[in-house]
């Protein structure tokens, strides 16, 4: 697949939650192997948009989604689409780390195990590789079998990233993934995003403009459930076409 081909393609997407129209007529193509940031004031629908990408709304009540979301050309809202297979393609990194209630090793091995990797040697290799990829290996290699909840928040978040990478996703979704972290952990995670985009398409929701500027290639500005502007990072932040974007970037809309 070439670099600028759409990886996720959203067509006429509308989302209603409990009678409120949260996302209105969205159309976007999210490119392959780059970092795309979704920015906008709180309550604008950016997290909702991210969740529609791996159908996590399925677990919530009163959510109605219409339109299409194509991942690799496959409509994930088609009733015939099998969702676990879609979700496997996407690693999710949520606002706060939620390690599974098991050891560090088992957290990373969880995904590969359920998807059919049973041999210990194979799992060992995967665990080591992903923990190295998230710069965690040196910190935890001596206590792989202790509980994951004993790690610091920053370490936990990197563990969650490693856990997501271990199932071999193509896309990483980050929902304000650094908002609960200290500055050092934040910069480690940000560096990881930049490094990982060689192999993955990354979509981040963030309300920190500087973070969007640091890590992303493209920016989507969402306001009141609509996409106001979508373009290269440089252009959207330096030279916005729309008045609303200009005001947001200057900090008038929070």
């Amino acid at each position: 697949m070439t670099k600028d081909k759409a990886h996720i393609s959203v067509q006429d997407l509308n989302v209603h939650i409990g009678g409120n129209h949260i996302l209105k007529d969205l159309n976007i193509d999210i490119p392959n192997k780059s970092v795309t940031s979704i920015i906008g004031p709180s309550g604008c629908g950016k997290t909702t948009l991210l969740k529609t990408f791996n159908r996590l709304h399925d677990t919530a009540a009163d959510v109605k989604v219409t339109g299409k979301v194509l991942v690799d050309g496959e409509d994930i809202y088609d009733p015939n689409t099998e969702i676990t297979h879609i979700r496997k393609k996407m690693g999710l990194l949520s606002q706060r780390p939620y390690p599974l209630p098991m050891s560090i090793y088992d957290n990373v091995a969880y995904g590969p195990r359920i998807h059919g990797t049973r041999k210990k040697q194979d799992l060992d290799i995967i665990v080591e590789k992903q923990l190295k990829a998230t710069a965690l290996w040196n910190e935890v290699k001596d206590r792989l079998h202790s509980s994951a909840t004993r790690l610091s928040i920053g370490q936990q978040q990197r563990l969650c990233l490693a856990r997501g990478l271990a199932v071999g996703p193509e896309i990483i979704l980050g929902d304000e993934s650094t908002s609960a972290l200290d500055p050092v952990s934040t910069s480690i995670i940000e560096d990881l995003f930049v490094k990982l985009k060689q192999d993955y398409s990354i979509v981040l929701v963030t309300h920190i403009l500087r973070q969007a500027a640091r890590v992303s290639d493209y920016i989507i500005f969402v306001y009141d459930g609509r996409i106001v502007e979508y373009g290269k990072t440089e252009q959207v932040l330096r030279n916005p076409r729309e008045e609303l974007t200009k005001e947001y970037v200057k900090g008038y809309i929070v």
Binding site: D72, E74, E82, T84, G116
Partner: peptide
Amino acid sequence: QSGQPINYYIQLMQRIR
């Protein structure tokens, strides 16, 4: 389509799950 290998064994596992 995405260029990744699909193993029928894995697909079978998936069906069983």
